[in-house]
Structure formats: structure tokens, C-alpha cells
């Protein structure tokens, strides 16, 4: 069986990819997808710890974090639609009424 380190390394790499995505992408939806990647990387960490320690709490936390991600997606996509109606773009470099 694979050791815990492999799982942690994989999720750390996924988390880093997500972070880089958020920092470099310009499309609001792609940024949001990168955030989801970060959250799922964390879920992987939680499940790995939970499974290796034989403790169920980590997996329950994963359910909570999935629910939260779903709620965030609902609100976030609604905001993206509103911003598209106002500006006809979702490129965050072109949405600069307020100075960044």
C-alpha cells in the first residue's frame, strides 16, 4: 500500500496548481474553477489522514466542505452572471470601476 506521504504530496501539488491558477488567470470563471481545485486538494488531504488514522471525523468534514463548495458555487455563479449583464465581460482585468 502507498504511504501517506504520497497522498499528501499529490494534494499539495494540486493545491499549488490551484493557487497558481487563481493568481495568473484573468477569467472569473476559470479563477473560480482553480479555487474549486484548491478545495478538492484539501479534501484529498482530509480523506488521506482520515483513512490512515482510522478516524472518521476527517471524512465527515469532507462532506461539510463539499456542501460549502456547492453553496459557494451557487452564489459565485450568480454574481458572475450579474457582472456579465453589467459589463458584458468576465475578464477581471477589465472590471476596474473600483481601483484594485
Amino acid at each position: 500500500m502507498l504511504s501517506l506521504t504520497w497522498f499528501l504530496a499529490l494534494s499539495a501539488i494540486l493545491f499549488a496548481i490551484g493557487t497558481i491558477g487563481v493568481l495568473t488567470r484573468k477569467n472569473a470563471i476559470v479563477i473560480f474553477m482553480s479555487v474549486e481545485l484548491m478545495l478538492n486538494a484539501v479534501n484529498l488531504t482530509l480523506v488521506a489522514f482520515s483513512s490512515f488514522m482510522g478516524d472518521i471525523h476527517g471524512q465527515i468534514l469532507v462532506f461539510f466542505s463539499l456542501c460549502v463548495a456547492a453553496a459557494e458555487a451557487a452564489v459565485g455563479l450568480a454574481i458572475v452572471i450579474a457582472i456579465f449583464r453589467n459589463n458584458l465581460t468576465v475578464d477581471i482585468t477589465k472590471i476596474k470601476l473600483l481601483r484594485w
Partner: peptide, 24 residues
């Protein structure tokens, strides 16, 4: 709306860090 978008993107981003901290 612009405030909501910025708040949402950066808030969700910070949630990622927060949750990773909890997991570790």
C-alpha cells in the same frame, strides 16, 4: 456587483488556505 465579485473571488481563495490549515 463589482465589490461582490472581488469579495467572492478573494474570499473563496482564502477559504482554500483556511481549509488546508484545518486539514493539516
Amino acid at each position: 456587483i463589482e465589490a461582490a465579485l472581488k469579495y467572492f473571488l478573494l474570499g473563496a481563495f482564502s477559504t482554500g488556505f483556511f481549509l488546508y490549515g484545518i486539514a493539516l
